[in-house]
Design a protein around this nucleic acid. Structure first.
Lengths: 116, 116
DNA sequence: CTAATTTCAGTTCAACTGATATAA
DNA sequence: CTTATATCAGTTAAACTGAAATTA
């Protein structure tokens, strides 16, 4: 990630926005591992690069609505292919079947501990 | 770990010493994820609590030989049971067979990327 | 001489705490 | 009034960089 001037928080936020469309910063904190205190800086960094847009929510003036821009979508796709390659290297010793098993087992562990 | 005044580095070093007997700080760095720059403080912290002993190597005066004390062995056993409980909670959704599968797959991934 | 070992000072990323101002 | 949101200042743990002194 550092090789393309990205950090984990950047990817996590872009991916969350891709799933959810747009959301307030607090909502994005809840959906990710990014603390609300760190969300400010993360959104700042991505907004400076034009990857997300931050706008006040007209229906609730406490909130900022964060939205993925077209450039943000493109950047996310780039990071996705990059990370797919990294994952491929990581899982090199496993067959396709075994990779599927591993992902399945890990997914069940994560789901079991997910917030309700 | 924080609940028993321990950090990951403490456990990692105690466990490495339990495997290898005693070793120089540089050797312990190579065998763990603890950087040589951080090894000094880690050994300091464990030595202050009497869990390891640091002594100059008579056969190579550059080296410090680090050894697990009896108290260190006891502390390690305590951490082992603590972490076994944590792992049990983590893997709660998986059957014994599935846990074994998961450990096996992860072990193969780790082994494949281990330093030669 | 080169190379290895220990140590120090400092940086970075991520997770977190606690507080404040504003608005619902 | 209480609660939610965004923000700020600061802390912690771990991984790391670069350099120095000592010794093999």
């Amino acid at each position: 990630l550092a090789g393309v001037q990205a950090r984990r928080h950047h990817y996590v936020l872009l991916a969350a926005l891709d799933e959810v469309g747009s959301a307030s910063q607090a909502e994005l904190s809840r959906r990710t591992t990014i603390d609300r205190s760190d969300m400010v800086a993360t959104v700042n960094e991505l907004a400076e690069r034009g990857l997300v847009q931050r706008a006040p929510d007209p229906t609730d003036r406490r909130r900022n609505v964060v939205t993925l821009t077209d450039a943000g979508h493109r950047h996310l796709r780039k990071l996705d292919t990059l990370l797919a390659k990294v994952q491929d290297d990581l899982l090199a010793p496993l067959s396709p079947d075994e990779r599927e098993q591993l992902v399945h087992l890990l997914t069940r562990v994560v789901d079991h501990h997910a917030r309700p």
